[in-house]
Design a protein around this nucleic acid. Structure first.
Lengths: 105, 105
DNA sequence: TAAATATTTCGATGGTTCTAGAAATATAGT
DNA sequence: ACTATATTTCTAGAACCATCGAAATATTTA
């Protein structure tokens, strides 16, 4: 994953409401949740929620599919894993006990 | 880690300049980098850079220590690991092959 | 076609963030 | 004390984001 895409995803997940939305979707598993289900969990008006979901969709973190009257939202697990991999590899090296900045003699 | 703290960290890392700052610090290892070192890598004015660094410091992702005339910045590896753990546990379950949403019969 | 349900789009408002130049502060060396 | 270096704080404007009510759109059922 490129750094700009990572920053974009992190930015979207950096809003408490959106992070909670994403978390609820993940907890719901592959079946995901309808927008209305999310609304019941999150004390926000429909228009505000819709706005936040569209951010997540734009970033590719969530996909939507219409099922009759309801819109089902599913998280993109692969993208999330890519993001976590990026953070681990690019932003968290140096944690291991053997890691030291080699002295530049 | 609580969800609000996670959101705050993600929000701070969600800016491309700040993400790059943090990444550079991680790559530099435990020794970290001085603000001036960062400035040479990142094409931004000092005041803008300082502003971004203070966001990272406020979130606890970076610590600063004065060394003579320069301010040395070090990433908080533990906090970053906590954030990655949060994302993995709270926002990425469901990836394993055996994971399915159990039918609520 | 009308009514009900689910969700989005529109529009306005207030707040926050980004950016960057100028001035201020801190430290070290002369 | 003065100068140079390193970095922050101040200030202001532009851009962006969150919020939410109202109106619009999509779908199902009567």
């Amino acid at each position: 994953m490129e750094i700009l895409q990572a920053a974009r995803c992190l930015d979207k997940l950096g809003n408490p409401t959106r992070l909670e939305v994403f978390r609820l979707l993940v907890k719901a598993g592959k079946a995901g949740l309808a927008v209305g289900d999310l609304q019941e969990h999150l004390n926000v008006p429909a228009s505000t929620l819709s706005h936040h979901i569209s951010h997540l969709v734009n970033a590719g973190l969530v996909h939507q599919e219409r099922e009759g009257r309801v819109l089902r939202c599913r998280p993109d697990f692969e993208l999330m894993q890519s993001l976590i991999d990026f953070m681990t590899e690019e932003c968290c090296e140096g944690l291991g006990p053997a890691q030291e900045s080699r002295d530049a003699s």
